[in-house]
């Protein structure tokens, strides 16, 4: 009898769990033969406020156009194998276009070829993949090298052209990390000889790691560090906490320059704890679906559709803050 009661409880719980999972609703349903634009999108996962905004933009746009767009969304939880699995299932579902934000640059050839053989164009969103140009239809996103270069110019201006700085790199192997590093370091080496990058370490694009790495930098170099360059805002936000704990003032003792433009960094800038953010626009939904529609209709799109971006500084942060969507 007792055993039976337990079994009942278990079954009830499992059922509850199942409905909860159903409610979160990214389970792809059969596409069926319809005239809608069927798009499979393999997102990296949630790693930062920025990516959340991109996800929201794509889902919002699809939600606004329910009668013309059928979006199948897969969350890969930061794992390449999950993204590959998602792409394979999209191919099986025979979607019109596959969208992908590759978690790392390499290792995509096989699955892209599979999609190409099935006649499904691939649209890369915000991150590049190191594959032959013929394997994907178009890339929508920012010029990371340009972002790194802009960050270097801003950093140099803030420090008056000289000072020691540290760099918080993104996930090892991600194109955003590789290019933001390259653009920044090349610009520093070419035009700002007074700026010295004394240390550079990965913070995996997360706040917790950004904080831990910055704590370590501060122990090694102490007051020598005049500036920090973060490959994303969230790492910079973590670093700001570490700087405060070291008894220094972020924003003045140590200037903070990062890339993305998430709401949190605007709040920090308004509070005087950060200096500049180079925007990397995540609201790519409209551009993405436009490209998908063109591809479905058999049209051609440019190989690189660049997103619109700007540079935001602390002096206007308070005014900009209400306009920030993510």
């Amino acid at each position: 009898m007792k055993k039976r009661t337990w079994m009942c409880v278990m079954v009830a719980c499992v059922m509850l769990l199942a409905t909860a999972c159903g409610a979160s609703g990214d389970s792809p349903e059969g596409s069926g033969a319809n005239e809608k634009l069927v798009v499979g999108f393999a997102q990296i996962g949630q790693e930062s406020g920025w990516r959340d905004a991109e996800t929201a933009s794509i889902q919002f746009y699809a939600g606004q156009n329910l009668d013309t767009i059928d979006l199948k969304f897969a969350d890969a939880q930061q794992k390449q194998e999950n993204q590959i699995k998602a792409i394979k299932s999209f191919i099986e579902m025979d979607v019109d276009v596959i969208g992908l934000a590759p978690v790392v640059e390499t290792g995509w050839d096989a699955v892209f070829t599979e999609a190409k053989d099935a006649g499904i164009p691939i649209v890369l969103v915000d991150r590049m993949a190191a594959v032959d140009e013929s394997l994907y239809a178009t890339f929508i996103g920012s010029d990371f090298i340009e972002e790194g270069k802009n960050a270097a110019i801003e950093m140099s201006a803030l420090l008056g052209g000289s000072g020691k700085i540290v760099q918080l790199e993104g996930t090892v192997g991600a194109s955003a990390a590789n290019d933001r590093k390259k653009g920044f370091e090349d610009e520093i080496a070419a035009n700002h000889p007074g700026i010295e990058i004394v240390a550079s370490q990965t913070g995996d694009f997360t706040r917790a790691k950004g904080k831990e790495v910055m704590e370590s930098f501060l122990k090694t170099y102490g007051n020598e560090i005049k500036g920090i360059y973060g490959h994303n805002d969230d790492m910079a936000l973590g670093a700001i906490e570490a700087i405060k704990e070291a008894g220094l003032k972020p924003g003045s003792d140590v200037v903070v320059v990062s890339v993305d433009g998430v709401k949190g960094i605007f709040e920090a800038m308004a509070a005087g704890e950060a200096n500049v953010t180079i925007e990397c626009n995540p609201l790519l939904g409209p551009q993405f679906f436009q490209a998908c529609q063109t591809l479905k209709d058999g049209g051609t799109v440019e190989k690189w559709i660049k997103s619109e971006e700007g540079i935001f500084r602390a002096d206007t942060a308070a005014a900009d803050l209400p306009n920030r969507k993510y």
Binding site: Q46, E47, E241
Partner: peptide
Amino acid sequence: GIKGADCNNA
């Protein structure tokens, strides 16, 4: 420590 809940990475 990070003044926030980062569900995917915590």
